[in-house]
């Protein structure tokens, strides 16, 4: 590596020195000038050329087509190139993922109370189709799907004081929403705090399943997903986020949540397409 770096540095110095030497030689010998013209490379723009009218004001070519045809072609090509630029940039910025290393999907709090009940929010409903698609693909590919569900004890759990009663053990509000088609192949880990790991058997489950990478989905990006990611990271798992299958009450919380996961746990956010391709 350091050999390559030295070679690159030597090449850079050689090219730079040769170029400068050539430029000085050209200037000293006044190569490439036209004695008739009172300007040179330093006239950067057409209006900078002394008496530029004489140099540029030629009608040397008679264009055959009407002017608007050229304008239309000019604009059309410009628009096409701009579109292409956006596409290329998007492609470059799309992180190419290697195959995920022994992944499992953690579905955090996609429960009736969170989506349609006590803590209902539209942004929660909005991610249901994307989550459904991701889980179906995972089950097809044999990737474990693990539901980390709030399962609170009424009158005891700390969080209930902050958020009010929700996802109480044994109530329909604590059930996984039907759209996600909980099945026998899936796993359910009840939890009483934000994190899916805290005082639960999630860690031992993941270890026995041989999981090395957790894909975080569900609600809310900046709360339960964040705390679950924190524990996963601290326990040595790789963390990635399914950005189409997680959300928060507000856009700000969602964006901030993703940024926090990236900064603190190195959790890159991927689209469903990218994740499915890498599972």
């Amino acid at each position: 590596m350091s050999g390559r770096r030295t070679a690159a540095r030597v090449a850079l110095i050689a090219v730079g020195a040769l170029t400068l030497a050539a430029v000085v030689y050209i200037m000293v010998r006044r190569i490439g000038l036209n004695p008739e013209l009172d300007f040179g490379a330093g006239a950067y723009y057409y209006a900078d050329i002394p008496e530029y009218e004489k140099v540029l004001d030629w009608d040397t070519y008679q264009a055959r087509l009407p002017y608007w045809v050229y304008v239309a072609l000019f604009l059309a090509w410009g628009a096409l190139m701009y579109w292409l630029w956006k596409r290329i940039d998007k492609h470059i910025n799309t992180k190419k993922m290697d195959k995920l290393n022994h992944p499992a999907i953690l579905v955090v709090d996609m429960l009736n109370d969170f989506v349609t009940g006590a803590l209902a929010c539209d942004r929660g409903k909005a991610i249901v189709p994307a989550t459904q698609r991701l889980l179906r693909a995972a089950r097809e590919k044999g990737v474990p799907v693990i539901f980390c569900n709030d399962c609170h004890l009424p009158g005891i759990d700390l969080e209930l004081k902050l958020w009010g009663d929700h996802a109480i053990k044994g109530t329909p509000g604590a059930d996984v929403i039907p759209e996600l088609e909980l099945c026998d192949k899936d796993y359910v880990v009840p939890k009483r705090r934000y994190s899916g790991f805290f005082q639960t058997d999630l860690d031992i489950l993941l270890k026995e399943l041989g999981v090395r990478t957790v894909i975080i989905t569900g609600l809310h990006t900046h709360m339960c997903c964040r705390h679950t990611s924190a524990d996963a990271y601290m326990l040595g798992y790789d963390v990635v986020v399914a950005k189409e299958a997680t959300n928060s009450f507000t856009e700000e919380d969602y964006v901030g949540g993703l940024a926090y996961l990236k900064t603190c746990y190195g959790a890159d956010a991927y689209s469903n397409d990218e994740l499915i391709a890498a599972m």
């Binding site: 330093g42 900078d48 050329i49 030629w58």
Partner: peptide, 29 residues
């Protein structure tokens, strides 16, 4: 790159080359 250099370099190849060079550069301007 620069317009002045285009006109000078084109003129070294003669009048027609200078015209073609400057016409192209002008569109780039």
């Amino acid at each position: 790159d620069s317009t002045g250099a285009v006109a000078v370099a084109g003129s070294v190849l003669g009048g027609e080359a200078e015209q073609a060079a400057v016409l192209v550069k002008m569109i780039q301007n």
